[in-house]
């Protein structure tokens, strides 16, 4: 059977651990995310407060554990949204070609010509400062990029002999798309999805850092960084752990994408 690579084990295990920690946050976190006390303000690392406390005396470790929930959940929503939209339109536009392809691709061009970050800000400004608006805005600006990438992968296979053969022996278009094209581009899709996941985590956090999307006092890594920034001079250690968590989780998603590509693409594995 196929061999699971070392990096896949490590990154996979890490991501699973993070997800489980997020789900069982109340059991793992020693304190509540909003438990504050002026007496424990800026406590250094100790057994009671593994990562110390912030300017309101809240346990940073507990807040990071609770912060997994909004961060990963919202990024996952964004990833699923962009990938679904991008895959469906990319498949159709790449496989059907002709006028449909032309219309979709020009539309994609229009969306790609906007700077994505600023469009998100504009959409949020127009629709309001809630997290669902941020998610919708991010899906709307990002699907085009994936649509184009997936269309490129589909084009590689559209005229390949096995697709033509399948067409010639009377297989329906939906069958060809589902059974031939989709599995053959799945390696590309996985890599895209994991990069997308990293991108989404980073963007959700960026926007929270800017004060859009997830609002304080909800513990979200970007929002925590924003709060830590305000007290950076008096308690510089407060920025380290939210920053490290972001970095390690985004890095893990990227490495996992690479490892999955090696595993699922038999052509590269041989």
């Amino acid at each position: 059977m196929k061999k699971l690579t070392m990096s896949l084990w490590i990154t996979g295990a890490f991501i699973c651990a993070v997800v489980i920690a997020g789900i069982f946050a109340p059991l793992i976190a020693p304190h509540g995310p909003y438990e504050n006390s002026i007496l424990t303000k800026f406590t250094p690392m100790s057994l009671t407060y593994p990562f110390g406390t912030d300017h309101l005396g809240r346990c940073i470790f507990s807040r990071i554990i609770y912060g997994i929930r909004p961060t990963l959940f919202f990024s996952f929503l964004i990833m699923v949204g962009t990938m679904t939209l991008g895959t469906v339109l990319g498949l159709m536009s790449g496989y059907l070609g002709g006028k449909f392809d032309e219309v979709i691709m020009r539309f994609v061009d229009i969306i790609l010509s906007f700077p994505s970050q600023i469009v998100v800000l504009a959409v949020v400004a127009a629709l309001g400062n809630q997290i669902q608006n941020v998610i919708i805005a991010m899906i709307l600006v990002k699907w085009a990029w994936y649509c184009r990438m997936i269309r490129g992968s589909v084009l590689k296979f559209r005229q390949s002999p096995f697709v033509i053969y399948s067409k010639m022996i009377g297989m329906p278009t939906l069958f060809i798309l589902r059974k031939h094209i989709l599995p053959n581009i799945s390696a590309d899709l996985t890599v895209l999805a994991s990069i997308d996941m990293g991108w989404a985590i980073l963007n959700i956090s960026t926007l929270s850092f800017l004060g859009i999307g997830v609002q304080p006092p909800v513990s979200e890594w970007g929002a925590m960084l924003n709060e830590a920034k305000n007290v950076f001079r008096s308690n510089p250690i407060q920025v380290i752990f939210p920053g490290l968590s972001l970095m390690s989780v985004i890095g893990a998603f990227h490495y996992m994408g690479d490892a999955l590509r090696d595993l699922w693409d038999p052509k590269e594995a041989l």
């Binding site: 002999p161 096995f162 033509i164 031939h180 053959n184």
Partner: peptide
């Protein structure tokens, strides 16, 4: 068809 090696889905 003429190219049997490529006419089947490799996966």
């Amino acid at each position: 068809l003429q190219n049997p090696m490529n006419s089947f889905d490799p996966l």
